[in-house]
Design a protein around this nucleic acid. Structure first.
Length: 273
DNA sequence: ACTGGATCCTGATCGC
DNA sequence: TGCGATCAGGATCCAG
């Protein structure tokens, strides 16, 4: 799925096409996503109102209207694209907003792990209240991470992928960040020293910023709002590189399953302890 | 309060 | 070529 950089790329891509436009039609072809799309509520709330802004919180895309916020999550396989209003609907185009500029905003999500929600204010939703800090904010720092990690026996990789701890770090960028910070993904979070926490925070920020700059990572099916891929995959150091030489020490990259997710690391640069 | 595992889906790929 | 097994970028929920 889209991790934070892909969601950020999507937000930036759709913004100029939808800002200040009105939604003239809402089409919901499949309402059974992660949570059922509130069809009637959206039909009531979205029509004939100007879109005031587009932003992101965690991996949620927030489209602000005068009476509330349309909240979209892309799940594992979702894309949100701008197309011409007349272009033919594709399989898995579940949710479509037709705009008064001849364009459409389309959520396509084959696996249907995404969601479309409505809230007066996102903060009123439980799922938003539980979210940890944005990784690119000052709130996410060495002291915060070190303090949260105390007494947590879970593997550090799972820990940083937990959106109650910090948002936006998914399976790709977790592996990449830990490689950059030279921390073994299976190390228990409780062992994280303040120094390592600092290194890890910086690594997460660096990786995410670089990925945003590159327009995200396209493995196979991430495309931005204009249908183009992201180019961060050329900068990946370990993700998907089992057996290939580590860029630093030239020993082979290992992969293993941690918390049901494949994890990639260098067994030499990221010493286990 | 934490932790690991199951779970929601479709589609691509791989081995036989 | 066909078919079943396995694996995917997420995150919630549930049992222990």
């Amino acid at each position: 799925m889209p991790e934070l950089p892909e969601v950020e790329t999507t937000c930036r891509g759709i913004l100029p096409h939808i800002i200040k436009r009105n939604i003239t039609k809402v089409t919901i072809r499949q309402k059974r996503l992660r949570w059922e799309i509130p069809v009637r509520l959206l039909q009531q709330q979205l029509l004939a109102q100007p879109i005031l802004g587009v932003s992101r919180r965690a991996k949620y895309i927030l489209i602000e209207l005068p009476t509330g916020v349309l909240i979209i999550h892309l799940g594992m396989s979702g894309t949100l694209r701008i197309t011409s209003e007349s272009s033919i609907l594709q399989p898995h185009d579940h949710f479509v907003c037709t705009l008064n500029n001849g364009k459409s905003l389309r959520l396509n999500d084959p696996r249907r792990f995404g969601c479309v929600l409505w809230a007066k204010k996102p903060e009123e939703l439980t799922i938003f209240q539980r979210l940890g800090p944005e990784p690119l904010s000052t709130e996410f720092n060495a002291n915060y991470l070190h303090n949260k990690a105390r007494k947590r026996q879970i593997a550090i990789k799972n820990f940083i992928m937990n959106n109650h701890i910090v948002v936006g770090v998914g399976n790709i960028y977790a592996s990449e960040s830990l490689f950059l910070a030279q921390i073994h993904p299976e190390m228990s979070a409780a062992k994280l020293t303040l120094e390592e926490a600092d290194k890890l925070c910086r690594a997460i920020r660096k990786v995410l910023k670089a990925a945003i700059k590159a327009g995200g990572t396209t493995l196979k099916d991430f495309y931005n709002s204009e249908g183009k891929p992201g180019y961060f995959s050329t900068q990946l150091k370990v993700y998907g590189k089992t057996g290939e030489p580590c860029e630093v020490c030239e020993r082979p990259i290992f992969s293993t399953i941690i918390g049901q997710r494949t994890s990639y690391f260098c067994g030499y640069c990221q010493v286990k302890r």
